[in-house]
């Protein structure tokens, strides 16, 4: 019960202090919206449904990785993060509480292009349960990657630079813009060590039926990624922040 009180209050504090701030809400809406508009204007005859998996994945990836990396680095530089390290809650609870807000923010980002698209196309045939869980898994893995970046960065600008260093190559390698089969052979193994590849594949299957792997396998791999990243993050925090 005590751990739950601490978890809920860390989550509530983060949502209030960071995610519900006007600049972040506007980022959460404007970023996915502008990507969607850009794609629609670029190829007016293109099928919006084909674009949605990519737009959702990008919105989640950009929303989650930078938010968590920046907020944690910010709290660390002001030393308020020490309060969490000194509280009688396990590192696991603390990590879960910190990523929970980011995951919710990622889910919010993901559905902005969906809502926008719903004005132009009929989305009633989509299996929303699969889409929701795919978005959830992409959010979890991306948030944990953001946490891993936060552990490595000392300053906010470092966190932002590191986030971009990971995000942009990931976008090009995960099959969003170029199908993995069209990538040079030596780059393909890299694609398969990225969680976003599997999330995008599930979304491709759910929206246009062009998945290359069975959804269950993708969910399993994403789960392995999430658990591994969680354990790595916990270990890194324990090693790096408790000297």
């Amino acid at each position: 019960m005590k751990a739950w009180i601490a978890f809920w209050n860390i989550l509530k504090k983060d949502i209030k202090n960071y995610y519900l701030k006007p600049p972040n809400i506007s980022w959460g809406i404007i970023f996915p919206l502008s990507w969607t508009l850009m794609q629609v204007i670029r190829s007016p005859d293109g099928n919006i449904l084909n674009l949605l998996p990519g737009l959702i994945s990008m919105s989640v990836l950009f929303g989650t990785t930078s938010m968590l990396a920046v907020t944690i680095t910010f709290e660390r530089s002001g030393r308020s993060f020490e309060r969490l390290l000194l509280a009688p809650i396990s590192l696991g609870t603390m990590v879960l509480a910190k990523i929970a807000g980011t995951i919710l923010f990622g889910i919010f980002n993901a559905f902005v292009p969906v809502i926008f698209a719903s004005f132009f196309i009929n989305l009633s045939a989509i299996n929303w349960t699969i889409v929701f869980f795919a978005v959830l898994m992409i959010s979890i893995t991306s948030a944990l990657m953001g946490l891993l970046i936060a552990v490595s960065a000392e300053q906010v600008f470092e966190a932002q630079t590191l986030s971009n260093f990971f995000r942009f190559p990931m976008l090009f390698l995960c099959g969003l813009f170029v199908p993995i089969t069209s990538l040079p052979v030596f780059l393909r193994p890299l694609s398969y060590i990225l969680p976003l590849t599997y999330g995008t594949d599930i979304l491709n299957g759910a929206f246009v039926g062009t998945n290359t792997l069975p959804p269950l396998l993708c969910f399993g791999i994403l789960l392995i990624f999430a658990v591994s990243l969680f354990l790595i993050c916990r270990h890194c925090i324990n090693k790096k922040w408790i000297l």
Binding site: A6, N17, G78, E82
Partner: peptide, 30 residues
């Protein structure tokens, strides 16, 4: 333990009352 670090490290965006309530929540207080 109660810990007062050498730097005042509460949350700048939160008011005094909510800062105290948040710290209490970290100790599982209702």
């Amino acid at each position: 333990m109660g810990i007062v670090p050498d730097e005042s490290n509460l949350y700048n965006e939160m008011d005094g009352f909510n800062n105290l309530c948040f710290c209490a929540a970290l100790y599982g207080m209702r």
